[in-house]
Computed example of a mutant assay.
Amino acid sequence: MDSMMMDAWRTNMTSASEATTMDLAAMDMSVLQACMDACSACEQACTVCSTQLMDCAPACMNCADMCNTMMRALMRMQGMTPASMMAMLDACIAMCQTCMDECMEHAAHSDVCRMCAQACQACMDACMAVRDMMVPA
């Protein structure tokens, strides 16, 4: 997302009622962008992996859907409360962990599963960075 969009996002989120939406003024937009990028990459990797005839396919399909939903939620400009954002991040992290665990069982003999597991790890790391940024010090 370009800087103009991120600035518009920050303005819209912080101008809404502070009681119901997140205050993004102090948040690092590059961390949010990295999370969106990681969710997008993980969605793509999981989609490719789900086409393989492996036992991990259901977990990959679910993870792809969760990553897509997380990315869309991060891009939405209004209506995201801190509690709902934390729940979304936690759900995405959990789904990526499940998918990664499944794919690791095939990683030794499947480059696609190994790539998917790596994308899941990167997505978890990015979601945790956003979650950590939201937690008050």
Rank of each mutant, 00 (worst) to 15 (best):
V48W: 09
Q78S: 06
C49H: 10
D23W: 01
C35Y: 05
W9D: 00
R10E: 03
A34I: 10
R10A: 02
C67R: 10
R10T: 03
M29D: 06
M71S: 06
A26L: 12
N12P: 00
A83V: 11
T47E: 14
D101W: 00
D7P: 02
L53E: 15
D28L: 11
M13G: 02
R76F: 06
L53H: 15
C96Y: 03
T69C: 07
L32W: 14
C96S: 02
C46W: 08
E43I: 03
Q44F: 07
M22F: 09
E43S: 09
M86E: 11
N68S: 14
D65Q: 13
C63Y: 03
M104C: 06
T98N: 08
A73F: 07
M100I: 01
D101A: 06
T11E: 04
C49A: 14
T11D: 08
M86Q: 09
M75W: 12
Q97K: 13
C46M: 15
A94Y: 01
T11L: 13
N62F: 00
A87D: 15
D7V: 15
L53Q: 15
M95V: 01
M85F: 12
L24H: 00
M88Q: 12
C35Q: 04
H106Y: 11
A57C: 09
I93C: 10
C35W: 06
M54N: 13
R10C: 03
S15T: 06
C56T: 15
V48H: 11
N68I: 00
D65Y: 07
M66E: 08
Q78T: 01
Q78Y: 02
A38H: 03
M36Y: 10
A45T: 05
V48D: 12
A34K: 10
I93W: 13
A94W: 02
M104D: 06
D90T: 10
A25Y: 12
A26V: 13
C42L: 10
Q44P: 10
M29C: 11
A94F: 07
D28G: 10
C96L: 06
C39N: 15
D101G: 00
A41R: 10
W9L: 01
L24P: 01
A26E: 14
Q78M: 02
V48A: 11
A38M: 03
M61C: 09
A26S: 15
Q78W: 04
R72W: 12
T98A: 08
A57G: 05
L32Y: 12
C92Y: 05
M22Y: 09
A25G: 13
M29G: 12
T14W: 08
M104V: 04
Q97P: 02
Q97E: 07
C49P: 08
R76V: 00
S50W: 07
A34V: 04
M13S: 04
S40D: 14
M100S: 09
M22E: 09
M100D: 06
C103S: 01
N12E: 01
D23G: 02
C60V: 10
C56Y: 12
C96A: 05
A57H: 08
Q52N: 05
M27L: 14
A45K: 00
A59D: 11
M80L: 04
C103Q: 06
C35E: 02
C103K: 03
M104R: 08
C39E: 09
M104A: 04
I93L: 09
L53N: 15
